[in-house]
Amino acid sequence: MIHVENLSKSFGPLHVLKDISLRVAYGEVIVIIGPSGSGKSTLLRCINYLEAADSGEIIIDGQRLGENLRNITQIRSQIGMVFQRFNLFPHMTALENVIEGPVTVKKTPQHEAVSKGETLMEKVGLADKLSAYPSQLSGGQQQRVAIARALAMEPKIMLFDEPTSALDPELVGEVLSVMKNLARDGMTMIVVTHEMGFAREVADRVLFMDEGQIIEEGSPEDFFKNPQNERTRAFLSKIL
């Protein structure tokens, strides 16, 4: 459902993505790992066009990205994105955050969006925090609201950009368990993370990126037990 073909991207002299190709099938959970600065986040940001690639193409569900502006907003509305630093809207309550997309973008009637929003908040275990403002929630709670906000658009794909990196260690579990449930429900997901336990347990495929390239990919078992590439081994030995 996602085809990335020969994608390249530079920031000035910095070549962040070098000729990346990637295919993701329906319901697949891809985990991307790699050292910081390897281009993982940039790849995600290109997939929903927060960054424009210099060359190459991205086709999502048969639609080529970047042909015109209408097509961009329309494709983005089908891609949920969860950010490292949550990026909740601070002037809105948790529930208002969740219904903002459906009401503003899809023109869903308010009452319908609210009842759906409440169900989603329940799903992420925050049914009792509907009217809390983001500043009144812990990091883990905020990230779960952010996941609910992305899910409210009923996306076909969810992108996670280091969703637990900004959290205190004791709050990581609650976010990962929401993500595991999502994967179990068959959501197509691309997750950039340093949580190797999550990768092992949930991923269908693990990708290792370094210096703007996908160096190695494989099933979690092969990948962790039997890494082929020297750099993958060096990276894994440092973090495991």
């Binding site: 929903n48 927060l50 502006l69 907003t73 329309q74 983005r76 509305s77 089908q78 891609i79 949920g80 994105m81 950010f83 630093r85 990026n87 909740l88 809207f89 601070p90 002037h91 903002e100 997309g101 503003t104 973008v105 899809k106 952010a146 906000r149 992305a150 658009m153």
Partner: peptide, 26 residues
Amino acid sequence: DKGQMEAALSLGMTYVQAMRRVIIPQ
């Protein structure tokens, strides 16, 4: 914060919607 615009755009909002609903109220 730049992340606010990105979060709004990633929901499928247009630039104008993001300004009106998310950025300017803040």
